[in-house]
Design a binder for these strands. Sequence first.
DNA 1: CAAGAGATCATCT
DNA 2: GATGATCTCTTGA
Length: 192
Amino acid sequence: MILPKSFYEKSTLKVAEDLLGCFLIRRRGDKIIKTKIVETEAYCGFNDLASHASRGETERNRVMFGEAGIIYVYLIYGMYNMLNIVTEKDRYPAAVLIRALESLPYPNSLLIKEREFMYNGPGKLTKVLKIDKKFNGLEIYKKINGLWIEKGENIKKFQIKKVPRVGVDYAGEYKNKLWRFYIKDNKFVSKK
DNA sequence: CAAGAGATCATCT
DNA sequence: GATGATCTCTTGA
């Protein structure tokens, strides 16, 4: 049910695709919020100019260089936390950014209309789910940290769109890589 | 509608 | 001292 560490120890592009349709689950106290991952981006290796890792290992990006299945959270634009999961083998810097989630209806609680789109952007979803730097370096493949990912439906009933990543115009040849993935026709993906 | 600017700060130079 | 893996609000056509 819960995705094991080995799920993340493969190519970052594959992880980014395979995460689509999986469930991201957040527990705070006795409250559990279940969401579905509908959009991701891959940041791959030493040379990807869009990735923090291309400027070498620093205090901030240290966990990207570490083992797969570890959560990488950092602050951007002074106010938004970005949620990433580290991939591939130890010492190879790569991660998948979680960009948008679909809010799932609960049996006992009606989903308020305007709340449907509270997860359609990487900065918005971390704010709503209260994910911040405290999660940096924790394991996503264990429930104990209050944030984990479970396997999605066995049969993928959706098509995957592959497009350039958002907000990386400065990344030279890497800005055109089709490393942003989302579920085709899903209305919960982020804009642009 | 689309385009532009401002918010706000840890990290890097 | 500059900047960014963003978001929201304001402006103007």
